[in-house]
Structures are given as structure tokens and as C-alpha cells.
Amino acid sequence: MERTSRKPTGKRTGKSFDTRDKYEKGDRKFGPKKPFNKFDDKNEDRAKSFVQRRKLNKIDKDLHKDTIRLNKYIANSGICSRREADELITQGLVQVNGVVITEMGYQVQKTDKVVFDGQGITPEKPVYVLLNKPKGYISTTKDEKARKTVMDLVANASPYRLFPVGRLDRTTTGVILLTNDGHLTKKLTHPSFNMKKIYHVTLDRKLDRADLNAIAEGIRLEEGVAEVDNISYIDGKPKNEVGIEIHIGWNRVVRRIFQKLGYEVESLDRVMFAGLTKKNVKRGYWRILTDLEVNNLKML
């Protein structure tokens, strides 16, 4: 039987087709009716539109080159993530220059004052430094009498400006935290959070058992009764050395407790603050907190 050639048929119409015929006729599926001309009116309009968009984008970038989105500003301050910052903004908990901002995408300038929970914040990378403070240094950022401050000891710890969390007397040694995280500073120093502090106290004479019990029950000072969480003699040490755990933050409270009973504090060393210790940190030296330690502080 003689074979005959047939053109392929379309699946839907059953009609024959030829790819070349379709292309020459200008079918959209197989090719344009006329060759592409990059200089025709339509493409020229597209080119103009593209150039205009680039100019607008450049103008927008120039306008915001010294600004930062509010949620990123908050996240960079170390308070929370950007997503959590968006929630804080929508809840009306953030102020910029005294005005509550609830707008998503709000741009903040470097000179703006941003306040969260009543505390000013900065978009700097949060830094947390633990210092084992020696004697002779005061716990302030600067001193009018040009005395040595703790800032002199941590001058190379961070490119950002740090602030001490709380204070230690000039003659008191031990753990002190410095940071640029204003929100955490407020949390750790506010009386309502009851941050625990442990001191190693060396007295001018042995501490009587009766006086130790009296301190444990509470000594009345000008502000009220100074409540002590724990006090005990230190194992292996003379009876003039005791450990005392306290949470109140009254000025010179530990020294005044013993002075009320007729003792003089010869040395006072803070060995623990908010769960942080000076272990493996020599006197006068510092270290950066680990991520775990920072997370623990924020969860307190």
C-alpha cells in the first residue's frame, strides 16, 4: 500500500497548520508581524518612564540617607526585634520628639529623640561590659574634680558611649556593669525589680553573733528598715569577714548598716550583681558579656 504524507493536525480544531505559515502571517504565538524596533514610540515611552523612576528613587534615597526606619531604630537599640518593634509602635508605646508614632515605616532622623517606656533609646549596637572595679575610681561618666572614673578603665571596650549601671563607692571594689542599653539600665536599677547583690565585707573587728542576727532581722536607717536577704560568716575566714546579700539600693546602705552597730567597714567588695560575677576577671580589667548572660539579664 502506498504511504502518503500528512500535515500534523491541531488537537482542538483538527485543522492542519504550518509553523512557517503562522510565523510569516504574524501569529503572536510564533512571531511578531513586524521586526522589533527599539526606537518606536512605545519603547521610547518605556525608556523615559524607567529614567524617571531611577531619578525618583535617587531623590528618595537622598532624602532618607540620614534617616532610619523607626522599627529598625528600636531594634538596633537592643530592645527587641523589628517585628516586635512594629507591635510596640502600633500599640502607641513609642514617642518621637514627644509625639506618639503609630505609623509603619516612619523615618527617624539622627537628631530625633526617641523614647520607649519613658526611657530614651539610641540606635547603636548594644554593648554590655562587666568590669571588676578597683579602689580609687568613681562610678560616673565624668567628674568635675578630675578624679579617675570607671570610664577610664573601659575606654577601649566599645566605640559607643557607655554608662555605668548603678554606682559603687570610690573605695568599693567588684562587679559593675556598663552598657549603652538604656532600657536594660532602667530595669536593673529600678527598685521594683529587686536586683540581688552580694558583698564581701571586711570589718575592723569580729562581728558578734547577736549583731549578725540583728542585721538579718533588719536594721532601721533613715529611709526605713534595711532588709537583708542573707548574711553569714565566710567559711575559712576570720569572724570579721562576712558575706551579705541585699536587694535595696540605698546610698552606702551596707556601710551604714554596720556603722549603726558600731563597726567600721575596712573593705567592701561586690562579688555578684544581677547574677553576674567577677570570676576570671582581674581587678581593673573587664570583659564583654556572653549572649547567654545578656539574655538572662533581659529575662530577669
Rank of each mutant, 00 (worst) to 15 (best):
K110N: 13
E44W: 11
I101M: 10
I231E: 00
I246S: 01
G10C: 15
L276I: 04
Y285M: 09
Y137P: 00
F50Y: 13
E84W: 06
R287G: 03
Q119D: 09
S16W: 08
V154P: 02
V294D: 01
S158C: 03
L56S: 12
M272D: 07
Y137T: 05
P164V: 04
D40V: 04
K237C: 08
F258W: 03
Y23I: 14
V99W: 06
R220G: 00
K15Y: 10
N280M: 07
R69C: 04
T13Q: 01
I198E: 00
K65D: 12
N43H: 15
D181L: 05
I234N: 08
D211G: 09
D62H: 06
L131I: 07
L88R: 11
I244E: 08
V99L: 11
N240M: 07
D18A: 09
G249K: 01
R167E: 08
G224E: 01
G275M: 06
K298E: 02
Q107Y: 12
N230F: 07
N240D: 15
E217M: 11
V242Y: 09
L289G: 03
I248L: 02
I79E: 01
V94Q: 00
Y73E: 07
R287K: 14
A210I: 13
G166Y: 10
A85L: 10
R270T: 05
K197T: 07
T102M: 08
K48V: 10
V115T: 15
A146M: 12
I79P: 00
R82Y: 07
F30G: 05
N230H: 15
L177W: 04
D60C: 04
L268V: 13
R69V: 05
L63A: 14
H247F: 01
R6N: 09
N37C: 08
L212F: 07
R287M: 02
Y23K: 15
Y23V: 14
R170T: 14
K298T: 00
I89N: 10
E87C: 03
A47K: 15
D152R: 02
K113R: 14
T202I: 13
G182N: 06
R46S: 10
Y128C: 04
T140R: 08
D112H: 09
N295V: 11
T202H: 11
N194F: 00
I101C: 10
D291V: 08
E44C: 07
L70M: 08
I248P: 02
T290F: 10
L70S: 08
A214E: 01
T185I: 10
F30H: 13
L261K: 15
I246E: 00
G31M: 11
A214H: 14
D21K: 14
T290D: 11
